[in-house]
């Protein structure tokens, strides 16, 4: 098992003919992902790379292909519309890669999605990977922009707000011989679709996931909320890391969501709470996997 996606998941790509979307659609196809359709308004009826049919609308694509997941690569000004279109078409897993969406747009999207059957991952995220069993983990499902080859199929669930820190953690695990069940990049924006807590709950219920790495950063209280839940409900070993201990207050550190607000919001405060909740906190980002394995004892 894995969470959210597996090698059978049928995936759409919204914005498949843009250079960014096209490049990553190709990499996902090579990885073994079942990309069954692309969406580019005005290009419906064409075939992408002679293999993937392009549709005018998401609902037409879903009707034709039975897709249950989508990756969104459209520019920020059109991304909110793309997410709502996917939700309207009944797509269950909506992964929005786009960086730089106005936060008011996301506020409305979030309000519209409340009560719908769709789960949004992101935006401003690397996406999802459920590694396969093949060489360099091929044969799995990759939705988004993560490098596939750094993964290995196994039993560690990884959840993170940051793309490159996810890769760092995954690569450390793979180097030490530990594989991953599913890796989830939830994105660096202040309003996102899926929280650390949502993902922890899924990992907790997934029989294949035996241990978890949770990576967070300054800004908001999502990591704290997840840690407090885990203390009461999660029996699986968790290692954590919080980036931004040296970030000056009030400055936005790249990610729109990475800004130190109140006193409870610092990296130090979050690390302390994680630790109080029984999570093994990595001293440096260089030892995230090592910290997990020590706690796990496996």
């Amino acid at each position: 098992m894995s969470i959210l996606i597996d090698k059978y998941t049928k995936v759409l790509v919204q914005g498949i003919t843009g250079s960014f979307g096209a490049r990553h659609a190709r990499l996902s196809l090579e990885y073994g992902t079942k990309i069954v359709g692309g969406i580019t308004p005005g290009k419906g009826g064409q075939i992408f790379d002679n293999v993937v049919p392009i549709f005018e609308t998401v609902s037409a694509a879903v009707k034709e292909t039975g897709a249950t997941a989508t990756a969104i690569f459209v520019p920020p000004a059109f991304a909110a519309d793309a997410i709502m279109e996917a939700a309207d078409a009944g797509v269950g897993i909506i992964v929005c890669i786009t960086e730089g969406i106005p936060v008011m747009d996301m506020m409305r999207v979030k309000a519209m999605l409340a009560g719908s059957k769709s789960r949004l991952i992101g935006p401003n995220c690397p996406g999802l990977v459920t590694p396969g069993y093949g060489e360099e983990s091929h044969g799995g499902c990759r939705i988004g922009i993560s490098p596939g080859y750094i993964h290995k199929r196994g039993n560690v669930g990884v959840v993170s707000r940051s793309g490159t820190l996810t890769y760092e953690a995954v690569w450390q695990l793979t180097q030490l011989g530990y594989g991953q069940s599913t890796c989830v990049g939830i994105g660096g924006d202040p309003i996102n679709g899926t929280s650390h807590l949502d993902v922890l709950k899924m990992f907790n219920e997934d029989p294949e996931t035996e241990a978890i790495i949770m990576i967070g950063e300054i800004g908001g209280n999502a990591e704290v909320e997840a840690a407090r839940w885990a203390k009461e409900n999660c029996l699986k070993p968790i290692a954590g890391f919080i980036a931004g201990a040296t970030a000056p207050p009030g400055r936005r550190m790249g990610h729109a969501g990475a800004i130190v607000g109140g006193v409870e919001d610092t990296a130090q405060a979050k690390k302390r709470i994680l630790s109080d909740c029984g999570i093994a906190v990595a001293e440096t980002p260089g030892v995230m996997a090592k910290t997990l394995i020590e706690r796990w004892g496996k």
Partner: peptide, 15 residues
Amino acid sequence: NGAGLAMATMDIIKH
């Protein structure tokens, strides 16, 4: 490269 890694790099220098 990457905002999260950039923050973490500052942290590890300090560490």
